[in-house]
Amino acid sequence: MAYLELRQVTFSYPRKMKPALTGINLNFEKEEITAITGPNGCGKTTLTKLMIGILKATEGEIYLAGRPLTDYSLAEIGSRIGYVFQKPDLLLFCSTVAEEIGFGLTNRGCDPETVQKRIKFYLDYFELTDYRNDFPLHLSQGEKERLAIAAMLANEPEFLILDEPTIGLDAYRKKLLENYLKKIARLGRGMILVSHDAPFVNRLAERVVFMADGRIQVCNERKGNDGYEA
């Protein structure tokens, strides 16, 4: 049974004649890394928003772990799937960088010691320690992206959806993120990467889904990719 399953999913935005997505059939395994690519406006972000329940499919069904996605609340989906928006600003709402990383854990009843340990780990890993008391929206684009990813990873979700995770990251930080995602993948956590960054996708993804005009055009299995197995 696929972890995430989309059956004949069609989606139209209100007051738009043309559907943003048409007849999408896709399965995502829990331990698999899939990349979704395609030109601007082809429906990649819309597809991910449907998969985490922010948008509701106009037609068709989406299943998460065998149950219809509509049976889950947004928080239930959020505790299973970690999602990073294309615009990291949308995910940042706390007063300090440290609070942002610990927000989910604190409010889900984790003991303070564990929260502090995890905050420290992610601040160090994503090189945000110098900014721990800064206001998140004052950070640069790349720093915000790293913070949004760190805040999501701190919750340890079982599956990840990252929408353009490499935007604003320099080569060194991109490598750091790549290494961390590989580490997570080795622990059996799958992910969907929406990205235009071909080298990044090639190094990580086991399968590449190419979209155009709201439809799946090609779905390639990429056995033996260089990065993930390294």
Binding site: L74, A75, F93
Partner: peptide
Amino acid sequence: TAIQLRGIELKKVPWGQKMTIYRQ
């Protein structure tokens, strides 16, 4: 939406904690 995506069920959070979250 972002809060819920961090796995926090706002409807089930006790009122006191909810007010603290909103104040924050």
